[in-house]
Design a binder for these strands. Structure first.
Lengths: 181, 181
DNA sequence: AGCGTCATGTAACCGGTTACATGATTTA
DNA sequence: TAAATCATGTAACCGGTTACATGACGCT
């Protein structure tokens, strides 16, 4: 079976929901997958083109009530097969993030104590904001009991847990630096 | 001040240590920064070329005892300034990892319960291996009391904490899935 | 003789972002 | 009437990996 990149599979997955157009896909990702998957129009539209060329989806153009023309992509049987097959494959890329904060801290000798503290405090702030947005999204999902929200909540939980661990690391590291000074 | 990419700054930082050649830089990164920074020769050598062209380092070629020729890059004053300036700048890219596991889980409806469990178990295994390597590296560093190992340990601690949180998420999620079935 | 390691480098490719172009409709 | 939103798309660019090419030395 032909191999595509993860972005293609992500879009195939989204096409199983009500989101069928490039614009709608972008919205869904920004709102629901944003904490572990991002994408730009510069990739969505070319990928949709590829998907239809490969016969994984067919386009139906809808231009209701004078609205701007919308291209809606409906998964074909082949498209669904490709998606399901990918889901069954073992994971290829285990996340291994680049972390600019750790990189700067690693060369901490060349910085003053104050600068190091500032770096960590800013990082902690950013992490706390992130954590709060997770909570907010979580609450919004929990109120909407209709849809099968479990998978949404599970991915959010991942974000919450790892972010919380990072925040604790900040506190702990600030303590260590203080002791050294 | 001219802006470079993070890879360039990472290399400038490493050039402050005993590692002065492309080969040595690669080794250091693979051994010490591997958990938050990776790099390939395809980037190291062109970047070193850039660094010397920009006057941030000067090359001294050493070919001792018949060994293959080695190009050693020594930071100039300008190079050190550029590095220090970057260290003082606020962080630009907060890590936002793409996570293939979460993506697959997000489309979990199209998979059997068994497949989902397998996915999580494999992920957990990989995380546990990672955690163990952190511990091993940590112990190796702690035995070598000579160098200023604190920053090494701090970055390792970050890896340990976030990995541990992810492992706990795996366990918890496996429980949730079981309850649903 | 063959493998591992030291050592440097490039070209092709890929995945992704940014900036730009276009234009209609809705809302304030 | 101005701004926001809906909607699609492309070209230039950037950061990075992979695969390849080359060659010397040291160990088994």
């Amino acid at each position: 079976m032909t191999k595509y990149n993860d972005t293609t599979y992500a879009i195939l997955g989204i096409l199983t929901t009500e989101c069928k157009s490039g614009y709608a896909i972008k919205q869904l990702i920004d709102r629901s997958l944003n904490h572990f998957w991002k994408i730009s129009y510069g990739q969505i539209y070319p990928t949709l083109k590829l998907i239809s060329q490969e016969g994984l989806a067919e386009i139906r153009t809808s231009s209701s009530n004078g609205r701007p023309e919308k291209n809606e992509y409906y998964l074909t049987e082949k498209g669904l097969d490709v998606l399901k097959n990918w889901l069954e494959q073992p994971i290829e890329h285990f996340p291994a993030e680049r972390n600019e904060v750790l990189l700067k801290l690693f060369f901490g000798h060349y910085q003053s104590y104050e600068r190091q503290v500032l770096l960590l405090q800013k990082y902690k702030e950013a992490l706390e904001i992130r954590y709060q947005t997770y909570i907010t999204i979580e609450q919004a999902i929990q109120q909407d009991t209709s849809k099968d929200s479990m998978y949404w909540l599970i991915t959010l939980d991942y974000g919450k847990r790892t972010t919380h661990a990072a925040i604790e690391w900040c506190d702990c590291t600030l303590g260590k630096l203080k002791k050294e000074e």
